[in-house]
């Protein structure tokens, strides 16, 4: 693993044995993510994108292979250590707004921060309030989660992912359940996160969203079939990047 590699998966497999016959969703994937990179994973439904994301983020255990995050093999860690990695080193943005309905928007965002540094409550609160301000949802901070829009919830989800200042943020189709204006809000927010130096690994179906990435990998039947380097994103070249990406995706049968 070179010095600028933040995440690396080697010969990664995942088999779901609850189906009959068992389904092999990831089939020996090798993947490397560099420090500060914005990587997008694309592929048809059932290609294993989300499973790959859950497995490399330490949410689920792979059936085989290794996942190394900042030099630590996640597959060798116990439950307590893996959960510490999820708390301190990674953040996750889901397609659906997964929030605890018995907490306000602010408390949902605050939860990992208070968990991570219980003795520095004031600092955690200040950091979270700043995040809510930065992502434009401070005014709904004390609302219940059923009282805010989908876009606001996804921004809150990004705030929660950033609450412990992780080195990598994973996002699983963060705009999948949103309309176009809300999608733009969320992608702007993620781009903003990336611009701040955080590594972002995102799964998406949407070429418009994928065009924001530095690099796109394409999955088919649980394996990486091709990779496309797009370079640094700029709003001025957004249209050209999207066209270039679409052309590549069509060749791959997307």
């Amino acid at each position: 693993m070179s010095h600028d590699t933040v995440l690396e998966a080697r010969d990664l497999t995942k088999t779901f044995s609850s189906t009959d016959p068992p389904t092999r969703v990831l089939d020996g994937i090798d993947l490397t993510v560099r420090e500060g990179e914005f990587l997008v994973v694309m592929g048809a439904s059932g290609s294993g994108k989300s499973t790959l994301l859950y497995t490399v983020s330490g949410m689920d255990r792979p059936s085989g292979g290794t996942v190394t995050l900042r030099g630590r093999d996640l597959t060798a860690l116990g439950d307590a250590e893996t959960s510490r990695v999820r708390l301190h080193e990674t953040g996750f943005v889901f397609q659906e707004a997964y929030f605890l309905r018995n907490l306000t928007v602010r408390d949902n965002v605050l939860l990992p921060a208070l968990k991570a540094v219980p003795k520095e409550k004031a600092a955690a609160v200040a950091r979270v309030d700043a995040l809510l301000e930065r992502f434009g949802i401070a005014h709904v901070a004390h609302h219940g989660i059923t009282q805010v829009s989908g876009g606001q919830l996804q921004r809150a989800s990004i705030c929660r992912a950033l609450a412990c200042e992780p080195s990598v943020v994973f996002a699983d189709e963060p705009t999948g359940a949103l309309n176009s204006s809300m999608s733009a809000e969320v992608m702007d927010a993620l781009t903003h996160v990336h611009a701040g130096g955080t590594t972002v690994v995102m799964v998406t179906h949407d070429p418009g969203c994928a065009a924001r990435a530095d690099r796109v990998v394409y999955l088919r039947d649980g394996g990486v079939v091709d990779t496309r380097v797009l370079g640094t994103w700029s709003p001025e070249r957004a249209g050209a990047r999207e066209d270039e990406l679409l052309l590549w995706l069509r060749k791959l049968g997307f």
Binding site: R101, N102, D107, L110, L111, P118, A124, H142, H143
Partner: peptide, 30 residues
């Protein structure tokens, strides 16, 4: 529910582990 949530937040008060506060919030809301 929003009225109830506003009354006691996770950061309110000086002491208490977040796990305990979370458990209490669940007991209260459900």
């Amino acid at each position: 529910q929003a009225r109830r949530l506003r009354r006691g937040g996770l950061a309110a008060g000086r002491t208490g582990k977040v796990d305990v506060r979370l458990a209490l919030a669940d007991l209260r809301s459900d």
